[in-house]
């Protein structure tokens, strides 16, 4: 299950928690629903989720509990579901900003979706990486690099600082 978390791997390497297969650059999605489905499809293809529908439901459940647009054009939806077979994070940058409930009422340009399994016991190491990854999103410098990123390499590089 933890293909890239070997014993000798540096657990502090946040970058290793990003699978290039779940990074979408310049998505032409026009709505929250459309981009969520697009991202979740990539997570299904990458083996993070077993049921796209099941996971989407959990994401909307979280959406109903509070705002996930953290401001600055960034949204961090997430879902916790038995459909998540491997915890992970997916990123989509949007060609055109889309409406999203946010703390500063700005449209969203970057969507970072977290997938968390129902039973977190067996996935603790991986979830620790996701938490460190989330922390990076609290850093304005990381957000600035993320927003100016034009390809997958630049997106992963944004999390290196």
């Amino acid at each position: 299950m933890y293909v890239y978390l070997k014993e000798d791997d540096d657990l502090m390497d946040v970058k290793s928690s990003i699978n290039p297969r779940t990074i979408i650059v310049n998505s032409s999605s026009k709505s929250k629903d459309e981009v969520l489905k697009e991202i979740i499809h990539s997570m299904h293809n990458a083996g993070n989720v077993s049921s796209e529908e099941g996971f989407l439901k959990s994401v909307y459940q979280r959406e109903s509990q509070g705002i996930t647009g953290i401001g600055n054009g960034v949204a961090i939806p997430h879902g916790q579901s038995e459909s998540v077979v491997e915890p992970g994070v997916a990123i989509a940058t949007l060609k055109d900003p889309i409406p999203w409930e946010s703390l500063d009422d700005q449209k969203t340009k970057i969507v970072v979706l977290f997938a968390v399994p129902d039973n977190s016991e067996g996935a603790k190491l991986h979830l620790q990486l996701l938490a460190q990854f989330a922390r990076k999103l609290g850093d304005d410098d990381v957000l600035a690099s993320l927003k100016s990123a034009k390809n997958v390499q630049e997106i992963t590089a944004a999390f290196e600082n």
């Binding site: 979280r62 509990q65 509070g66 996930t68 953290i70 961090i76 997430h78 879902g79 916790q80 977290f114 968390v116 979830l127 996701l130 938490a131 460190q132 989330a134 922390r135 990076k136 999103l137 609290g138 850093d139 304005d140």
Partner: peptide, 18 residues
């Protein structure tokens, strides 16, 4: 935070930085 994966750590980082 509710799910305990995102907002918790973003809030931590923002408050520490500030």
């Amino acid at each position: 935070c509710t799910v305990g994966i995102a907002h918790t750590y973003i809030a931590q980082e923002k408050l520490e930085k500030a």
